[in-house]
Simulated scan of single mutants.
Amino acid sequence: MAQRQRIRPTQQRAVAMRRTLLDAALHLLEERGAERLTTTAIVERAHVSTGTFYRYFNDKAEIISALRDEAVAAVDRDLRDAVVRALDLDLDDAVREIVTTLVDGFERHGPVVLAMVDAQPGGSNANVLPEIERDLFQLAAVIPRRHLPDVPPDRLEALVFMTMGVVVATALRIALFRPPGADRAALVDVATSMLVAGLRS
């Protein structure tokens, strides 16, 4: 039996309650991770009844999905701003701007992104953020097109397609899976060099 889709509230008090539940879930994800997140823990953290929770969400998967949507939208907004900043930079600095923006976004939304990674059979090797990769392909493709005008369009399209997927995966690894003691800035530099070399290949 399909679950009933909850209606997003529009009244200020209901919007505030939904936010309270989302924030409680987010704090618990930070403290415990997705596997140990329960609706009971969420209602206890939010100081509300179980019935209140179920007025807004069907289950913990739905609340994680709502947090995922918020994280994707926030990273997308940051990415759009980064592309605008990168337009007047040379290719190396433009790529570094995109990589740094994605790393920042994945770190800022780390608990939610990790919950998405944990939910995928392929874990960190799965494409957990296809929307980000799709939007990156559409937005950031303007940068190599601007810097590599002599590359034939079909070749450039292939380069951009491959590079943008690598950008997302690399930024995710730097943000959430880098080895203890690894220097974040140095990893961003390595990723930038690899990606620029790929685009110029």
Rank of each mutant, 00 (worst) to 15 (best):
F57G: 03
D78L: 03
L172P: 02
E97P: 00
D150Q: 14
R77I: 06
I143K: 04
A140V: 01
F53A: 09
L172E: 08
L136P: 00
L148Q: 05
E131A: 13
R145Q: 12
L79K: 00
E62P: 00
D59Q: 08
L102R: 03
R68W: 06
E107S: 05
A141G: 15
G51R: 03
L159W: 04
G105M: 05
V113C: 03
V103Q: 02
A171I: 04
A61I: 01
V72A: 02
A71G: 04
L148K: 05
S124K: 13
R68N: 10
A71Y: 00
F137V: 10
D69W: 00
S49D: 15
H47Y: 13
D88W: 11
V151C: 11
V151A: 10
A171K: 04
V117L: 09
S49R: 12
R155V: 15
D93N: 14
D92F: 10
G122L: 12
L91H: 05
V84W: 04
G165W: 06
L89G: 02
Y56D: 07
A94K: 01
V99S: 02
S49K: 12
D135P: 02
R55G: 11
T52A: 15
A41G: 15
D90I: 00
R146D: 10
V166F: 12
K60G: 08
G51V: 10
A41H: 11
A158I: 07
L148D: 02
A115I: 01
E131V: 13
V95A: 09
L148W: 10
V113K: 02
V95N: 05
V103D: 02
V75C: 08
E133D: 11
V95Y: 07
M164G: 02
L102K: 03
P149R: 01
A66L: 06
D92I: 12
D76I: 00
E97C: 14
A82Y: 03
M164R: 03
Q138I: 12
V168A: 11
D81C: 11
S65F: 12
R80M: 10
D93Q: 14
P152H: 03
V75T: 09
T163I: 11
A74G: 06
E62K: 01
L89Q: 13
V168G: 04
D78G: 15
S124G: 05
A82P: 05
R155H: 13
V75K: 01
V43K: 03
F106G: 01
D92Y: 13
A171D: 08
D104W: 00
P152V: 14
R96K: 11
L102D: 00
P153R: 10
D154L: 14
P130N: 06
D93W: 06
G51L: 05
M116I: 07
V83K: 05
L89S: 08
L172Q: 13
R155D: 15
L156A: 13
V99C: 03
F57Q: 06
V142I: 15
H147D: 02
V113S: 05
G110S: 08
R108D: 07
V117N: 01
T40D: 14
G123L: 06
A66Q: 07
H147T: 05
I64C: 07
V117S: 01
F106T: 01
D88Q: 13
R108W: 02
H47A: 15
D150A: 15
A126D: 14
T52V: 15
V72T: 07
A126N: 07
P152S: 09
P149C: 10
L87D: 12
T163Y: 05
S49I: 04
S124V: 14
T40Q: 14
